[in-house]
Nucleic acid binder design. Structure first.
Length: 289
DNA sequence: GATGCGTGGGA
DNA sequence: TTCCCAAGCAT
């Protein structure tokens, strides 16, 4: 197991992508912002938004004071706009609870809006260089293949995976943080889900999945292909795109292209409920002030 | 523990 | 074209 960690870490020292939230002048806040934006959203789409965002709101206090419509417009088309609201809530919580400085304690991080097990660990490791068990979808896949010998991890994160991940993390802060970054990077650029680049892998000779002859994914039948066409998500996305692009309040009549009447009303109510939209006295819709 | 939640690009 | 899926979280 040591060889796995050492070699992946050594590989990373050379192969790491040059990302702005990894720059020497990065801040804990910048790291936190990147982690939230990267929740289910690819690096290539996050990078330009992150740069714009950090130029505009370089500290938690800056974002805490930002008007919500500007926050939602700056979030743009990253997807899951509730993350933008939570990030603003998170900024306010950091100001109120921590004097405007991102905490390094994992429990305090976990208590922030939009920060779960993964993000708290990632911020601790990447922003503060401290030891943490950082397990994202990349790490799960790398573990599943190199150690367990499976093509892909189970659909949901298991206790066994957490135990294995914990056992792999080196003792010291520096080594642990390096392993976190390296294992994620390997999964992101080499040990990819669809077409892994095994010839570029630093640990192909010890990979349990390869040594077993690349057995197929045993969970394939359980991986539900998430339908998209006609979903509330699609309708909500269309409504939000319209509201972001509008200068002022939008009459409901201008939103009917988003979906069937009943579904539209359900989605509008949901967006208001979620704090992503508001109505005025005339019943028009807009981004929440 | 299962669901709901956006979006766009690559195979 | 269709399908898959990308640094998860909250409920």
């Amino acid at each position: 197991m040591d060889a796995l960690v050492e070699r992946v870490t050594a590989w990373f020292a050379d192969a790491a992508r040059d990302l702005p939230w990894r720059a020497p002048d990065r801040t804990p806040w910048g790291v936190l912002v990147s982690e939230v934006m990267l929740q289910q959203t690819p690096v290539v789409r996050v990078e330009p938004v992150w740069r714009e965002w950090m130029g505009r709101w370089p500290s938690p206090a800056d974002l805490a004071a930002a008007p919500t419509p500007e926050v939602l417009r700056a979030w743009g088309r990253l997807g899951y706009p509730r993350r933008a609201l939570r990030l603003a809530d998170c900024a306010r919580a950091i100001v109120e609870r921590h004097g405007g400085a991102v905490p390094s304690d994992e429990e305090a991080l976990r208590a922030l809006p939009g920060v779960g097990e993964y993000t708290a660990a990632a911020v601790r490791a990447f922003a503060f260089g401290r030891r943490a068990v950082v397990v994202d979808t990349n790490v799960r896949r790398v573990q599943a293949r190199t150690v367990t010998g499976d093509a892909l991890p189970a659909p949901s994160y298991t206790a066994a995976e957490r135990r294995l991940a914990t056992s792999l993390v080196p003792d010291g802060d520096t080594d642990a943080a390096a392993w976190a970054a390296a294992s994620m990077e390997l999964g992101a650029v080499v040990c990819t889900a669809r077409v892994p680049r095994c010839d570029a892998c630093p640990v192909r000779d010890l990979c349990a999945w390869r040594l077993a002859g690349f057995p197929p994914d045993e969970h394939a039948h359980r991986r539900r292909t998430q339908s998209w066409d006609g979903t509330d998500r699609q309708v909500r996305g269309r409504v939000m795109a319209t509201l972001r692009g509008a200068d002022g309040p939008v009459p409901r009549a201008l939103l009917t292209d988003a979906g069937p009447e009943a579904q539209l009303d359900r989605c509008l109510a949901g967006l208001v409920e979620d704090g992503l939209a508001e109505t005025d006295d005339a019943g028009r819709f807009m981004l929440p002030v």
